[in-house]
Protein backbone atom coordinates (compact mmCIF):
# COMPACT_ATOMS: atom_id res chain seq x y z
CA UNK A 1 0.00 0.00 0.00
CA UNK A 2 1.15 3.53 -0.66
CA UNK A 3 2.00 6.12 1.90
CA UNK A 4 -1.07 7.60 3.53
CA UNK A 5 0.32 10.34 5.72
CA UNK A 6 3.53 11.68 4.26
CA UNK A 7 5.53 12.67 7.33
CA UNK A 8 8.62 13.59 5.37
CA UNK A 9 6.84 16.24 3.35
CA UNK A 10 5.59 17.96 6.51
CA UNK A 11 8.98 18.20 8.17
CA UNK A 12 7.61 17.11 11.55
CA UNK A 13 9.95 14.83 13.43
CA UNK A 14 8.22 12.90 16.20
CA UNK A 15 10.12 11.82 19.28
CA UNK A 16 10.68 8.06 19.08
CA UNK A 17 9.88 5.59 21.84
CA UNK A 18 13.62 5.16 22.32
CA UNK A 19 14.13 8.89 22.88
CA UNK A 20 11.33 8.97 25.43
CA UNK A 21 12.83 6.08 27.41
CA UNK A 22 16.30 7.63 27.28
CA UNK A 23 14.93 10.92 28.57
CA UNK A 24 13.31 9.13 31.50
CA UNK A 25 16.58 7.32 32.25
CA UNK A 26 18.36 10.66 32.11
CA UNK A 27 15.82 12.14 34.50
CA UNK A 28 16.61 9.36 36.97
CA UNK A 29 20.24 10.50 37.16
CA UNK A 30 19.98 13.10 39.99
CA UNK A 31 18.00 10.66 42.11
CA UNK A 32 20.48 7.86 41.52
CA UNK A 33 23.33 10.21 42.32
CA UNK A 34 21.94 11.28 45.67
CA UNK A 35 20.92 7.70 46.43
CA UNK A 36 24.54 6.68 45.90
CA UNK A 37 25.89 9.47 48.03
CA UNK A 38 23.36 9.60 50.84
CA UNK A 39 22.01 6.07 51.14
CA UNK A 40 24.28 3.47 49.67
CA UNK A 41 26.66 3.13 46.73
CA UNK A 42 25.53 -0.46 46.43
CA UNK A 43 22.59 0.78 44.39
CA UNK A 44 24.93 1.26 41.43
CA UNK A 45 25.73 -2.44 41.47
CA UNK A 46 22.05 -3.26 41.75
CA UNK A 47 21.20 -1.08 38.77
CA UNK A 48 23.94 -2.49 36.61
CA UNK A 49 23.08 -6.04 37.57
CA UNK A 50 19.34 -5.57 37.07
CA UNK A 51 19.67 -3.78 33.72
CA UNK A 52 22.08 -6.35 32.32
CA UNK A 53 20.08 -9.36 33.42
CA UNK A 54 16.81 -7.75 32.26
CA UNK A 55 18.23 -7.09 28.81
CA UNK A 56 19.51 -10.66 28.57
CA UNK A 57 16.17 -12.09 29.69
CA UNK A 58 14.22 -9.81 27.36
CA UNK A 59 16.36 -10.85 24.43
CA UNK A 60 15.87 -14.48 25.37
CA UNK A 61 12.09 -14.17 25.72
CA UNK A 62 11.65 -12.32 22.43
CA UNK A 63 14.00 -14.73 20.73
CA UNK A 64 11.86 -17.63 21.99
CA UNK A 65 8.90 -16.12 20.18
CA UNK A 66 10.91 -16.07 17.00
CA UNK A 67 11.17 -12.28 16.82
CA UNK A 68 14.25 -10.12 16.64
CA UNK A 69 15.27 -9.68 20.26
CA UNK A 70 17.52 -6.71 19.52
CA UNK A 71 14.61 -4.59 18.30
CA UNK A 72 12.75 -4.88 21.56
CA UNK A 73 15.86 -4.13 23.63
CA UNK A 74 16.61 -1.06 21.55
CA UNK A 75 13.52 0.83 22.65
CA UNK A 76 15.03 0.98 26.13
CA UNK A 77 11.83 0.19 27.97
CA UNK A 78 13.18 -2.90 29.71
CA UNK A 79 16.35 -1.10 30.83
CA UNK A 80 14.18 1.62 32.35
CA UNK A 81 11.96 -0.89 34.14
CA UNK A 82 15.02 -2.72 35.50
CA UNK A 83 16.55 0.52 36.76
CA UNK A 84 13.30 1.39 38.53
CA UNK A 85 13.15 -2.05 40.14
CA UNK A 86 16.75 -1.73 41.31
CA UNK A 87 15.96 1.66 42.82
CA UNK A 88 13.02 0.22 44.77
CA UNK A 89 14.72 -2.75 46.41
CA UNK A 90 17.00 -2.37 49.45
CA UNK A 91 20.65 -1.93 48.44
CA UNK A 92 21.74 -4.96 50.43
CA UNK A 93 19.40 -7.36 48.64
CA UNK A 94 21.37 -10.44 47.57
CA UNK A 95 21.90 -10.60 43.82
CA UNK A 96 20.11 -13.91 43.42
CA UNK A 97 16.97 -12.45 44.91
CA UNK A 98 17.24 -9.40 42.71
CA UNK A 99 17.60 -11.74 39.74
CA UNK A 100 14.36 -13.47 40.68
CA UNK A 101 12.69 -10.07 40.81
CA UNK A 102 14.03 -9.20 37.36
CA UNK A 103 12.96 -12.60 36.03
CA UNK A 104 9.39 -12.07 37.26
CA UNK A 105 9.41 -8.53 35.95
CA UNK A 106 10.48 -9.48 32.43
CA UNK A 107 8.59 -12.71 32.06
CA UNK A 108 5.39 -12.39 34.08
CA UNK A 109 5.25 -8.62 34.11
CA UNK A 110 5.92 -7.98 30.46
CA UNK A 111 6.68 -10.69 27.95
CA UNK A 112 3.87 -13.07 28.80
CA UNK A 113 1.41 -10.33 27.85
CA UNK A 114 3.13 -9.70 24.55
CA UNK A 115 5.92 -7.27 25.35
CA UNK A 116 6.00 -3.50 25.31
CA UNK A 117 2.62 -1.84 25.04
CA UNK A 118 0.60 -4.89 26.01
CA UNK A 119 1.31 -5.34 29.71
CA UNK A 120 -1.63 -4.32 31.89
CA UNK A 121 0.57 -4.10 35.01
CA UNK A 122 3.66 -2.07 35.66
CA UNK A 123 6.40 -4.69 35.19
CA UNK A 124 8.78 -3.19 37.75
CA UNK A 125 6.05 -3.19 40.38
CA UNK A 126 5.10 -6.79 39.59
CA UNK A 127 8.71 -7.77 40.21
CA UNK A 128 8.91 -5.65 43.34
CA UNK A 129 5.68 -6.95 44.88
CA UNK A 130 6.65 -10.53 44.13
CA UNK A 131 9.99 -9.97 45.88
CA UNK A 132 8.34 -8.25 48.83
CA UNK A 133 5.97 -11.13 49.55
CA UNK A 134 8.59 -13.78 48.82
CA UNK A 135 11.56 -12.39 50.75
CA UNK A 136 10.04 -10.14 53.38
CA UNK A 137 13.16 -10.14 55.54
CA UNK A 138 15.71 -9.07 52.99
CA UNK A 139 13.20 -6.79 51.27
CA UNK A 140 12.78 -4.75 54.47
CA UNK A 141 16.47 -4.77 55.26
CA UNK A 142 17.53 -1.16 54.92
CA UNK A 143 20.58 0.60 56.15
CA UNK A 144 22.09 3.83 55.04
CA UNK A 145 25.54 5.33 55.05
CA UNK A 146 24.39 8.08 57.37
CA UNK A 147 23.05 5.56 59.84
CA UNK A 148 26.36 3.79 60.13
CA UNK A 149 28.01 6.94 61.37
CA UNK A 150 25.03 7.95 63.46
CA UNK A 151 25.34 4.68 65.35
CA UNK A 152 29.04 5.39 65.85
CA UNK A 153 30.02 2.23 64.08
CA UNK A 154 32.68 1.44 61.61
CA UNK A 155 31.27 1.26 58.15
CA UNK A 156 32.09 -2.13 56.65
CA UNK A 157 34.10 -1.84 53.47
CA UNK A 158 32.14 -1.88 50.24
CA UNK A 159 33.86 -5.06 49.18
CA UNK A 160 32.65 -7.07 52.12
CA UNK A 161 29.13 -5.81 51.54
CA UNK A 162 29.37 -6.79 47.89
CA UNK A 163 30.66 -10.16 48.95
CA UNK A 164 27.67 -10.46 51.23
CA UNK A 165 25.36 -9.55 48.37
CA UNK A 166 26.77 -12.43 46.39
CA UNK A 167 25.91 -14.91 49.15
CA UNK A 168 22.62 -16.62 49.79
CA UNK A 169 21.85 -14.90 53.07
CA UNK A 170 23.39 -11.58 53.82
CA UNK A 171 23.14 -11.72 57.62
CA UNK A 172 24.49 -15.24 58.10
CA UNK A 173 27.39 -14.64 55.75
CA UNK A 174 28.77 -11.56 57.46
CA UNK A 175 29.32 -12.46 61.13
CA UNK A 176 31.87 -9.71 61.50
CA UNK A 177 29.23 -7.04 60.99
CA UNK A 178 26.98 -6.26 63.90
CA UNK A 179 23.74 -6.17 61.93
CA UNK A 180 21.60 -6.18 65.04
CA UNK A 181 23.05 -2.89 66.10
CA UNK A 182 21.54 -1.28 63.08
CA UNK A 183 18.02 0.01 62.92
CA UNK A 184 17.33 -1.77 59.65
CA UNK A 185 14.47 0.49 59.06
CA UNK A 186 13.52 3.29 56.77
CA UNK A 187 12.07 6.29 58.56
CA UNK A 188 8.65 5.09 57.44
CA UNK A 189 9.11 1.73 59.07
CA UNK A 190 10.45 3.35 62.16
CA UNK A 191 7.46 5.65 62.45
CA UNK A 192 5.17 2.75 61.87
CA UNK A 193 6.71 0.54 64.52
CA UNK A 194 6.55 3.39 67.04
CA UNK A 195 2.88 3.84 66.22
CA UNK A 196 2.13 0.13 66.49
CA UNK A 197 3.85 -0.13 69.83
CA UNK A 198 2.07 3.04 70.99
CA UNK A 199 5.46 4.55 71.87
CA UNK A 200 5.68 8.30 72.17
CA UNK A 201 6.53 9.87 68.82
CA UNK A 202 8.46 13.05 68.63
CA UNK A 203 7.87 14.86 65.41
CA UNK A 204 11.22 16.65 65.33
CA UNK A 205 13.12 13.49 66.19
CA UNK A 206 11.40 11.59 63.38
CA UNK A 207 11.98 14.39 60.94
CA UNK A 208 15.63 14.64 61.82
CA UNK A 209 15.97 10.96 61.51
CA UNK A 210 14.38 11.02 58.08
CA UNK A 211 16.79 13.70 56.96
CA UNK A 212 19.73 11.92 58.47
CA UNK A 213 18.86 8.72 56.69
CA UNK A 214 19.41 10.32 53.28
CA UNK A 215 15.90 9.65 52.03
CA UNK A 216 14.93 13.28 51.84
CA UNK A 217 17.91 14.14 49.67
CA UNK A 218 17.26 11.20 47.37
CA UNK A 219 13.57 12.05 47.01
CA UNK A 220 14.52 15.61 46.15
CA UNK A 221 16.73 14.19 43.43
CA UNK A 222 13.79 12.25 41.99
CA UNK A 223 11.59 15.32 42.29
CA UNK A 224 14.13 17.23 40.24
CA UNK A 225 14.08 14.50 37.60
CA UNK A 226 10.28 14.57 37.62
CA UNK A 227 10.23 18.29 37.01
CA UNK A 228 12.65 17.73 34.13
CA UNK A 229 10.25 15.17 32.63
CA UNK A 230 7.35 17.58 33.00
CA UNK A 231 9.41 20.30 31.36
CA UNK A 232 10.33 18.05 28.47
CA UNK A 233 6.67 17.03 28.21
CA UNK A 234 7.56 13.36 28.51
CA UNK A 235 4.96 13.06 31.23
CA UNK A 236 1.89 15.19 31.95
CA UNK A 237 1.06 16.75 35.28
CA UNK A 238 -2.16 14.80 35.81
CA UNK A 239 -0.81 11.62 37.36
CA UNK A 240 1.97 13.00 39.62
CA UNK A 241 -0.21 15.83 40.88
CA UNK A 242 -3.19 13.62 41.63
CA UNK A 243 -1.01 10.98 43.32
CA UNK A 244 0.78 13.47 45.55
CA UNK A 245 -2.30 15.61 46.04
CA UNK A 246 -4.61 12.84 47.19
CA UNK A 247 -1.93 11.39 49.43
CA UNK A 248 -1.19 14.77 50.98
CA UNK A 249 -4.85 15.56 51.50
CA UNK A 250 -5.57 12.26 53.20
CA UNK A 251 -2.43 12.59 55.33
CA UNK A 252 -3.48 16.05 56.45
CA UNK A 253 -6.94 14.88 57.38
CA UNK A 254 -6.43 11.44 58.85
CA UNK A 255 -2.78 10.74 59.53
CA UNK A 256 -1.90 9.45 62.98
CA UNK A 257 1.75 9.60 62.09
CA UNK A 258 3.77 12.34 63.64
CA UNK A 259 6.06 12.50 60.64
CA UNK A 260 5.22 15.92 59.23
CA UNK A 261 3.60 16.06 55.81
CA UNK A 262 6.50 17.22 53.62
CA UNK A 263 8.66 14.63 55.30
CA UNK A 264 6.20 11.81 54.75
CA UNK A 265 6.01 12.84 51.10
CA UNK A 266 9.78 12.84 50.80
CA UNK A 267 10.49 9.56 52.55
CA UNK A 268 9.62 6.28 50.95
CA UNK A 269 8.91 5.84 47.30
CA UNK A 270 6.44 8.71 46.84
CA UNK A 271 8.55 10.93 44.58
CA UNK A 272 10.08 8.11 42.58
CA UNK A 273 6.66 6.52 42.27
CA UNK A 274 4.61 9.58 41.43
CA UNK A 275 6.91 10.79 38.66
CA UNK A 276 8.50 7.63 37.30
CA UNK A 277 6.38 4.60 38.14
CA UNK A 278 2.75 5.70 38.12
CA UNK A 279 3.34 7.64 34.90
CA UNK A 280 4.24 4.53 32.91
CA UNK A 281 1.86 5.18 30.01
CA UNK A 282 1.29 1.54 29.09
CA UNK A 283 -0.31 0.53 32.36
CA UNK A 284 -1.90 3.89 33.21
CA UNK A 285 -5.35 5.11 32.24
CA UNK A 286 -5.88 6.71 28.82
CA UNK A 287 -7.72 10.00 28.95
CA UNK A 288 -6.59 12.89 31.11
CA UNK A 289 -9.70 12.65 33.25
CA UNK A 290 -9.22 8.91 33.76
CA UNK A 291 -5.58 9.60 34.64
CA UNK A 292 -6.69 11.93 37.42
CA UNK A 293 -8.87 9.14 38.84
CA UNK A 294 -6.01 6.69 38.41
CA UNK A 295 -3.53 8.94 40.22
CA UNK A 296 -5.95 9.78 43.00
CA UNK A 297 -6.53 6.08 43.54
CA UNK A 298 -2.81 5.42 43.82
CA UNK A 299 -2.31 8.23 46.31
CA UNK A 300 -5.28 7.15 48.41
CA UNK A 301 -4.36 3.46 48.41
CA UNK A 302 -0.75 4.29 49.28
CA UNK A 303 -2.00 6.26 52.24
CA UNK A 304 -4.37 3.49 53.35
CA UNK A 305 -1.69 0.81 53.13
CA UNK A 306 0.96 2.96 54.79
CA UNK A 307 -1.39 4.00 57.55
CA UNK A 308 -3.43 0.90 58.21
CA UNK A 309 -1.80 -1.94 56.32
CA UNK A 310 0.80 -4.55 57.08
CA UNK A 311 3.48 -3.00 54.88
CA UNK A 312 5.35 0.20 55.67
CA UNK A 313 5.34 1.28 52.03
CA UNK A 314 2.26 0.65 49.92
CA UNK A 315 3.18 2.33 46.68
CA UNK A 316 3.84 -0.83 44.68
CA UNK A 317 0.59 -2.42 45.76
CA UNK A 318 -1.31 0.79 45.14
CA UNK A 319 0.06 0.96 41.59
CA UNK A 320 -0.80 -2.68 40.91
CA UNK A 321 -4.29 -2.27 42.36
CA UNK A 322 -4.95 0.76 40.19
CA UNK A 323 -3.39 -0.99 37.17
CA UNK A 324 -5.97 -3.71 37.46
CA UNK A 325 -8.72 -1.12 37.69
CA UNK A 326 -7.56 0.75 34.57
CA UNK A 327 -9.80 -1.07 32.08
CA UNK A 328 -12.82 -0.39 34.27
CA UNK A 329 -11.82 3.26 34.76
CA UNK A 330 -11.36 3.68 31.02
CA UNK A 331 -14.71 2.02 30.39
CA UNK A 332 -16.56 4.27 32.82
CA UNK A 333 -14.72 7.31 31.47
CA UNK A 334 -15.88 6.37 28.00
CA UNK A 335 -19.48 5.91 29.11
CA UNK A 336 -19.38 9.30 30.80
CA UNK A 337 -17.92 11.10 27.80
CA UNK A 338 -20.54 9.44 25.61
CA UNK A 339 -23.29 10.75 27.82
CA UNK A 340 -21.81 14.24 27.82
Amino acid sequence: MNIIVDKHATGVKARSTQTIMLLVLLALAPGILSYTVFISPLVIFNIIFAVCSAIALEWFAVHLRGDNGLNSIKDGSIALAAALLALCVPPALPFWQLFIGVLIMVMLGKQVFGGIGHNPFNPAMVGYAALLVSFPQSMTFWFTAAEWSAMGMQKPPLLSLLNAKLSLDIIASTPNIQWDGLTQATPLEHARSLRLQSLPQSSTELNQRAFGSGWIQTSLGFLLGGVFLLYKKVIRWHIPVSVIGSFALLSLLFSTNSLSLPWSLLTGAMMLGAFFIATDPVSAASSRRAQLVFGTGIGALTFVIREFGGYPEGFAFAVLLMNLSVPLIDHIDLLMSQRA
Partner: peptide
Amino acid sequence: LAFMGFSGLT
Protein backbone atom coordinates in the same frame (compact mmCIF):
# COMPACT_ATOMS: atom_id res chain seq x y z
CA LEU B 1 -0.36 -10.28 44.46
CA ALA B 2 -1.80 -6.77 44.35
CA PHE B 3 -4.50 -7.68 46.85
CA MET B 4 -1.82 -8.89 49.24
CA GLY B 5 -1.12 -5.22 49.80
CA PHE B 6 -4.29 -5.15 51.86
CA SER B 7 -3.10 -7.88 54.17
CA GLY B 8 -2.78 -6.75 57.74
CA LEU B 9 -5.17 -3.88 57.11
CA THR B 10 -6.64 -2.99 60.45
